[in-house]
């Protein structure tokens, strides 16, 4: 009568059995709507000039207080989408890149100076610059796998950048926070100057 197999002898078979039973790894890249959303979400984050200007909108809104703190983030995506539509449709808009750099210079300067113009002036300024940002994105839009998901990601990222600016801008409740927010505004304005100089 043969001896029963020892535990040592069974172990390799156990390992083999477990390997054979392991489910197939479904390695895949995101496609369709998920890919469209991620691509759209990353698009506004990919350009530092866009990024700092959108944060500046939030910072300035926080400085201006209600109702500007929420009206500027309402105005910006709407007008930006209008600019995006112009870009998608190929309608020519001049001075787009200088306009984007200038937006960082001006909006950052507004934060540094703690400027408090009338709400309509602030909205006009932010909206005017939003056209350049939207156009640049619209003109560069790829043939998205899922246009709706791409657009949703794009707008969500823009809104979250504003929110980041507003969040940081909330520091103005404290004296040291005012200094920090104005310093960030200064950095944004300086960054805008560098982008502007690079274009000249």
């Amino acid at each position: 009568m043969p001896n029963p197999p020892s535990a040592h002898a069974v172990r390799p078979w156990l390992a083999l059995a477990l390997l054979a039973l392991a489910p197939v790894a479904l390695a895949h890249t995101e496609t369709g709507a998920a890919s469209g959303f991620v691509t759209g979400f990353l698009h506004p984050l990919s350009g530092p000039d866009h990024l700092i200007a959108m944060v500046a909108v939030g910072l300035w809104g926080a400085f201006l207080g209600a109702p500007a703190i929420w009206q500027l983030p309402v105005v910006f995506p709407v007008v930006m989408a209008f600019g995006g539509v112009l870009g998608i449709l190929g309608v020519p808009v001049p001075f787009v890149e200088p306009g984007i750099a200038l937006s960082a210079v001006v909006l950052g300067a507004m934060v540094v100076m703690t400027a408090r113009p009338a709400l309509w002036i602030a909205a006009l300024l932010v909206g005017g610059f939003a056209v350049f940002h939207g156009f640049a994105h619209g003109a560069e839009l790829p043939h998205a796998v899922s246009p709706l998901a791409y657009s949703a990601g794009f707008v969500a990222a823009t809104g979250l950048l504003h929110l980041a600016g507003i969040g940081f801008g909330m520091l103005v409740r404290w004296p040291a926070g005012v200094v920090a927010v104005r310093a960030l505004g200064g950095l944004i304005s300086l960054g805008g100057c560098l982008f502007l100089l690079r274009l000249v």
Binding site: P77, V78, M80, A81, G84, V85, L89, P147
Partner: peptide, 8 residues
């Protein structure tokens, strides 16, 4: 904004 971009 999303619907405008999507439509375009």
């Amino acid at each position: 904004a999303i619907s405008g971009l999507y439509a375009a």
